[in-house]
Structures are given as structure tokens and as C-alpha cells.
């Protein structure tokens, strides 16, 4: 079994939005929508202010509430790598999955179905990296099989402190941010 995950180095990310543009181009994301985005979080008190820049998207959770609430089975976990996907012609557009996602990672495509990041599964199945990973100019994004202890992503997580988004939501995200 494989479990795909993404590891993003927040000390390298400069928030250039290349990943966003690559995703929109690769996946034909409609104008005015985005499957991934940049978040800048600033906190602290001067002079110890801290800035973290993150490239965010669907977390392809191990415990995805968007899948368990779907009434038609359109939202499902793909057999390869545990990627969370939406079958467009099964989706009725009830929007329950949008309400169930604590990351607000989904949106309603202008054609009516729920849409989101797919980890570029069509590229991954050909042995390529997701589009966002492949274009990152600072090489801050890494993609691989977290179940393989010798994979790049596993080694990074073993060697660097990291966090996930909203761990208390209980969704077990598969995108990790190195700090």
C-alpha cells in the first residue's frame, strides 16, 4: 500500500504563487477559482514577529469528512495513494462536502460539481510529480509515498520539525509543513 503525502518547507517558500498558476494551467481551473492558494500567517510581538508562508490545498486527509458525508459516493478515496477525489458525474452539488471540510479546500465548479485538488493524480500515475511541485522555483515542495520509510517525504519528516493544519479537527491531514 502507498500513501501519498506532500511536504512543504515553509522556510523556503516565498509565496510566489507559481504553484497556483501551474495548478490552474494544468487542471484548467476556471477563472476566479483556485484549487491551491498561498496563506501568510504573521504572529508574535515586535521584535519577535514570525512570518510563515504556506502553499495550501486539499489535505487529502486520512479521515476525510468530505467523503463520509457524501450522499452519492462521488467523493471517494482513490485506491492508489489514498488520494481524495470527486467523480463529477456522481456529484449532485449538494455542497455537504464543502460544509464538512474544515480547510474550505473545495468549491463548486461552474459546471455544478464539487471540485478540489487531486494531487494531479493523472500526472502521478505516469510517474510525474503534481504540477505545483514540479514548478516550484525554490524546491520547497516535495511529493511522495509516506508509507515508504526511505522516500524523500518520509526522510524529511524524520529529520525536520513539522506541523499539519488544524490537527484538532481530527481529519489526519497528509500535507505537512516543515518549520
Amino acid at each position: 500500500m502507498s500513501r501519498f503525502a506532500m511536504v512543504i518547507d515553509t522556510r523556503r517558500c516565498v509565496g510566489c504563487h507559481d504553484c497556483v498558476v501551474a495548478c490552474k494551467t494544468e487542471n484548467g481551473v476556471p477563472e476566479g477559482y483556485c484549487r491551491d492558494w498561498i496563506t501568510e500567517e504573521v504572529h508574535g510581538a515586535f521584535p519577535t514577529v514570525r512570518l510563515e508562508i504556506r502553499s495550501e490545498r486539499c489535505n487529502h486527509c486520512d479521515n476525510p469528512p468530505c467523503v463520509s458525508c457524501c450522499p452519492t459516493g462521488a467523493s471517494h478515496v482513490h485506491e492508489r495513494g489514498g488520494v481524495v477525489l470527486v467523480t463529477h458525474d456522481k456529484c449532485i452539488g449538494c455542497k455537504a462536502c464543502l460544509a464538512a471540510c474544515p480547510y474550505d479546500a473545495r468549491f463548486i465548479h461552474p459546471d455544478g460539481y464539487a471540485d478540489k485538488c487531486t494531487f494531479c493524480i493523472h500526472r502521478v500515475e505516469k510517474g510525474l510529480d503534481p504540477a505545483c511541485v514540479s514548478v516550484c522555483p525554490t524546491h520547497c515542495m516535495h511529493f511522495g509515498d509516506i508509507d515508504d520509510p526511505q522516500s524523500e517525504v518520509s526522510l524529511l519528516l524524520q529529520s525536520r520539525p513539522h506541523h499539519v493544519l488544524m490537527p484538532d479537527a481530527g481529519t489526519k491531514p497528509c500535507i505537512f509543513y516543515l518549520t
Binding site: 504563487h17 497556483v20 476566479g32 483556485c34 500567517e41 464543502l98
Partner: peptide, 13 residues
Amino acid sequence: LTELTLSRHNPLV
């Protein structure tokens, strides 16, 4: 002491 800025702008979300 916290500022969170997102570049996301999805309709309905």
C-alpha cells in the same frame, strides 16, 4: 497579534 492573509477567493467559500 496575528494576521492571516489568504490569496484564495473561491465563490461561496
